[in-house]
Simulated scan of single mutants.
Amino acid sequence: MMENNKQFWIELKNDMIDAAPRFGIDQLKVTTAEPFTELKERLIRHRERGHESGFEEPDLDLRTEPTLHMSDAKSLIAIAVAYPSKMKNAPVSEPGKRRGILSRSAWGEDYHQALRRRIAKLSEWIMERVPDAKLLSMVDTGALSDRAVAERAGIGWSGKNCSIISPELGSWIYLGEIITNMPLPPDQALPDGCGDCTLCIDACPTEALVGPGQLNSQRCISFITQTKGFVDDEMKLKIGNRLYGCDTCQIVCPVNRKIDIRRHPELEPDPEIVKPLLRPLLKLGNREFKEKFGTSSAAWRGRKPIQRNALIGLGNFRDAESVPDIADVLRADPRPELRATAAWALGRIGSEEAIERLQEARSEEKDVDVLSAIDRALDKQQKD
């Protein structure tokens, strides 16, 4: 039977906070299971503007009403786990050996696994003390909004860059939560700490941050690098050499500048995985891709986005030595999205060999979208 003693829940919560570091949890806070009414209104406006990414849970009620997941929910336990922001011994990108970059959230072990393991340990600890407790955990892929839970619980405030910013950990944190029927005493939300600062909004490469805390996901590089389809030429230029994600709005944040927390070995980056050579990526089969990236959260969309983005990176580097590899993609890859991107990359490089390869492909290509990309690339050379 659930304990009715208020002091019991106060002491349990304090003990839980003390125990959290043993499970690899850097912050633990609690909030109520009340609905996130204001968030729902914001999400409705977000949808009406066409600013969703398409990766979100479509049911706004599920994202904002904890009791739809557990009818007798009383509390939400919010956790945060810090990840590194700097890479030791980062390899150098140089002509002929150009490299791409994965965002910091994809460094080390897939954070979904890292957080689920920690939450499982915390849940086991709770059940030993409250055997009749109900616990439902969520990490990123759950319907409930991790950021909304973390904000109301006081893990951090919601920054203008749409990240939760912890005063101690910055925004370099993974978030998760447990819905429970335990009536734990809630923590207080933190006041906004951004003040008049707009560095993140000013620095966004694609002006995806359309206002404080307002993100047009359709223009966000982080989301675009995870899509599988065609990317328009304007966005290709903005992507640069990013293979997965974008950290710009977090890098410029003054709170983040001096924060680099390295408490968890499994979250440390392998430089050759998170800053890989681009040319070898073009030849990776599914098995090789899983062997190289399978433990990273960047692998969730498969190899097509990574390979497409590698072509974009080589084009933006104007890496003439990579022309044969790019041309092989244009000539033989079965995926039109990659052939079209290869055509763009060759046009961007613009060397004599690149133009020859484009002209050769022009006479053999049948796909309308790829032919259009080849023609744009060749037209660019005539204009230049």
Rank of each mutant, 00 (worst) to 15 (best):
D247W: 00
L282P: 07
E266W: 08
K236R: 15
D260E: 00
A299Y: 02
D233F: 08
K290W: 12
D270K: 15
K275V: 04
E234C: 07
I251N: 07
E266T: 13
G294I: 03
D247T: 08
R242F: 10
R262Y: 04
R303E: 04
V231N: 06
R303C: 04
R279F: 00
V274I: 14
K275P: 00
K236D: 07
M235T: 15
G240K: 04
C249V: 09
K275F: 15
R279N: 00
R301N: 08
I261L: 10
K258Q: 14
F289Y: 15
K258A: 12
D260T: 07
N256S: 06
G302I: 02
L281P: 01
D233L: 14
Q250W: 02
G294M: 01
L243M: 13
K238A: 13
E234L: 09
C246Y: 01
D270H: 13
N256V: 07
Y244M: 07
D232R: 07
R263S: 14
E266N: 10
D260A: 02
E272K: 06
R262V: 05
P269H: 05
G285C: 13
C246R: 01
E291N: 12
D233C: 06
C246N: 13
G302H: 08
W300K: 13
P280G: 03
G245K: 03
R301P: 03
R257E: 08
T295F: 08
T295H: 05
M235L: 15
R279L: 00
V255P: 00
K275R: 11
K292A: 02
R279H: 01
P254E: 09
I259P: 06
S297N: 14
N256K: 01
R279M: 11
D270A: 12
K258R: 12
G240M: 10
R263F: 11
N286C: 11
N256H: 06
L284K: 09
K290G: 14
I273W: 05
E272H: 10
L284P: 10
D270L: 12
N256W: 02
G294D: 01
M235K: 15
R262A: 03
E268S: 13
E234P: 01
R257I: 08
C249I: 09
N256C: 03
N241V: 14
K258C: 06
E291V: 05
A298Y: 01
G302N: 05
R257Y: 04
P271T: 02
R287E: 15
L277Q: 10
I239Q: 03
R257Q: 10
T295I: 04
V255I: 15
R303T: 09
L243K: 09
F289K: 02
L277W: 00
R262Q: 08
E268D: 13
K283C: 00
I273C: 11
N256D: 06
E288F: 01
G245S: 10
P265K: 08
R287P: 00
I273N: 04
I239C: 03
D260L: 03
F293G: 00
K283W: 08
E291G: 04
I251R: 01
I261S: 03
H264T: 12
S297K: 02
P269C: 06
V231I: 15
R301Q: 11
F293A: 01
M235V: 13
I259G: 06
P276A: 08
S296N: 14
P271R: 05
K283P: 00
G294W: 00
E288K: 12
R287N: 14
K238W: 10
P265L: 06
